[in-house]
């Protein structure tokens, strides 16, 4: 993408750059209306954010001096395509004492990377595996 990075001047995107925004199935903002909902032309899927929109919001965050917020949006962009059940499973695995060892987390990271191309999130889970190992978090809790 060679488009110039978005800044605060483009915000709010829904007002200033609506042409950049679509729902998860490609619907434009002006197509998401009450009448379209009543005609079953708009579903909950059309009201989901896209990875693209999250990355665009990240550009705005970074331009406003908030690099960590941008990183979170980037991790979130990774999770957009990950199904809810998988998200809840990985979240559960990251909680203390759930994973039996490093390998459980590394397997989850592999799944995120290979199945969902969630590279950032995979690296994040791998990092957790290292830290949990060092801090003894794999021991079973009752």
């Amino acid at each position: 993408m060679n488009n110039p990075k978005l800044t605060a001047a483009d915000y709010p995107l829904a007002e200033k750059r609506p042409e950049l925004i679509t729902g998860a199935r490609g619907k434009r903002l002006d197509e998401i209306t009450l009448d379209a909902v009543l005609a079953d032309a708009v579903t909950l899927e059309d009201l989901r954010i896209t990875a693209h929109a999250l990355l665009q919001q990240g550009e705005i965050s970074a331009a406003a001096g908030r690099p960590t917020l941008q990183e979170n949006f980037a991790r979130a962009a990774d999770l957009v395509a990950v199904p809810q059940d998988t998200i809840m499973r990985v979240y559960e695995l990251l909680r203390p004492g759930r994973a039996k060892g490093k390998d459980d987390l590394l397997a989850a990271a592999r799944e995120l990377r290979e199945t969902y191309k969630a590279e950032r999130m995979a690296a994040f889970v791998e990092e957790a595996a290292e830290v949990y190992d060092a801090r003894g978090l794999f021991k079973r809790r009752f």
Partner: peptide, 21 residues
């Protein structure tokens, strides 16, 4: 840990919320 989370699990949850808008 007693709160049943870690910085990584909570950061994961933060990203999960953002991923759902």
């Amino acid at each position: 840990i007693d709160g049943d989370d870690t910085p990584w699990s909570k950061a994961f949850l933060a990203a999960a919320y953002a991923s759902r808008g």
